[in-house]
Design a protein around this nucleic acid. Structure first.
Lengths: 240, 240
DNA sequence: CGGGTAATTGAATTCGGTCAATTTGGGTGG
DNA sequence: CCACCCAAATTGACCGAATTCAATTACCCG
């Protein structure tokens, strides 16, 4: 049993976040909430393993989770970091396609897949809104293919910081933005297809150039978003 | 106008392939078919550009299409090769997220996005089946992230040939499978995050080892699926 | 039978990886 | 409160897989 740290609690509709219940009547949200339960998972604990029977769907309520795939010899690719409002375990296969591990302490909403599937079929517009979410994820995955296939180490690191900025950044002042960086170097490396040494060197370089500053021992960073955009090879300069 | 080679024809429901109309009553398929038209596109012609207004949804009826993204300096990442039964242009954004180019001569079914969206909302189960298709694509994209982030050149080439085998392979005899390889070396390279030289060297290596044989000037190949599975770093040896 | 593009092969280069040595910093217990 | 411990991060030196640059060969098409 990999998740020894779980503790289930009753749940109210208030916890159900964006993806699942956005554009949904409160009544329906409450009905869904009643079918599942909240769980707390300690950081570094595994939530589910690739290949396990996927009997549940999860929504992140709080904290950050990493999803990854492994090669037989242990090489690892993190396919994404998910956070509040994101869903996991949706694939219509009967096994999980990723391993899921808590980056920080995490609160999850868990609902049996069979019940979730009933809601998808019964609640008008839910399948559609999940389809939109899946297509957004797909779009993001394709950007990541471009990153892994064609960007240099420094471009990847800049792109990563930029993504964190877009998702979690809080504008501070004078063109600097504060971003949380809860994951370890080895997680960043396995997300960017690099080694921890290369990630470290890249970040040092960005610090030396004044584009990035550590705040509380690296858990938070101050970044210059504009210069990151330049460095990330104009990630989106064409279509944004 | 990038697609000078298009020619529109009347369309019957017979052309509508798997993704769109699988599990759908013939009557509905016919209704959808009446809302769109067939187009023929010559090989190497562009079907739509990344950033263009996405006013249509396409289903490939015949042939193969490549989808790619570009960096400002011209570096290219092919995110996928799509073929009969696959859909393009589904994203709910109002612009295309990829450029789409015909690898072979292609026949497409094209339907205005607004009409398509009406069907998605009206036809029971269509949103659900599109959701499943999107999740399969997502799963595939994540496998490709692992390939680009963590596999060696030879592993990538073996994985690519294996994917082609699974999608298009026809068992010949004695453990060999025949696969079509309609794309150029530079397409394979941009799909695998490599250069044409590295792809060429890898294929030469596989030929020397008797794992791959050219058939009609490289357009078709005979491959040893089992040995490809080994070489691809056990791509799916865990979950299959 | 050429002509031109695509593919292959070879040699030199380089970016990122590997191996190894320090440094940093958060947590713990005296 | 501080010294110690240990994991994580950083830095340095060297190495190697894949790229780059360059030359040759194969192949499709008129």
């Amino acid at each position: 049993m990999y998740v020894s740290a779980w503790s289930a609690n009753p749940v109210s509709a208030d916890y159900l976040a964006s993806t699942l219940c956005r554009n949904m009547e409160r009544q329906v949200a409450t009905r869904i909430a009643q079918q599942g339960a909240l769980l707390k998972v300690q950081s570094d604990h595994i939530i589910f393993h690739e290949g396990d029977e996927s009997d549940s769907v999860y929504e992140i309520v709080k904290g950050m989770v990493k999803l990854y795939k492994l090669l037989p010899d242990g090489r690892r690719q993190i396919t994404g970091f998910v956070s509040a409002g994101d869903l996991m375990g949706l694939a219509h296969k009967d096994t999980f396609t990723h391993t899921s591990e808590a980056v920080t302490e995490v609160v999850l909403f868990r609902i049996p897949k069979a019940r979730f599937d009933r809601f998808v079929d019964e609640v008008p517009g839910l399948a559609r809104s999940l389809l939109n979410a899946a297509q957004d994820e797909l779009h993001f995955a394709h950007d990541q293919l471009l990153l892994l296939g064609r960007k240099t180490a420094l471009e990847r690191i800049a792109s990563f910081l930029l993504t964190m900025t877009e998702r979690f950044g809080e504008l501070v002042e004078g063109g600097t933005t504060s971003i949380p960086v809860p994951m370890r170097r080895c997680d960043i490396a396995d997300y960017l297809g690099l080694t921890i040494e290369t990630v470290s060197r890249g970040l040092s370089r960005l610090k030396k150039d004044g584009i990035v500053k550590d705040l509380n021992g690296g858990r938070t960073m101050l970044v210059d978003q504009d210069r990151l955009i330049d460095l990330s090879a104009g990630d989106d300069c064409v279509d944004m």
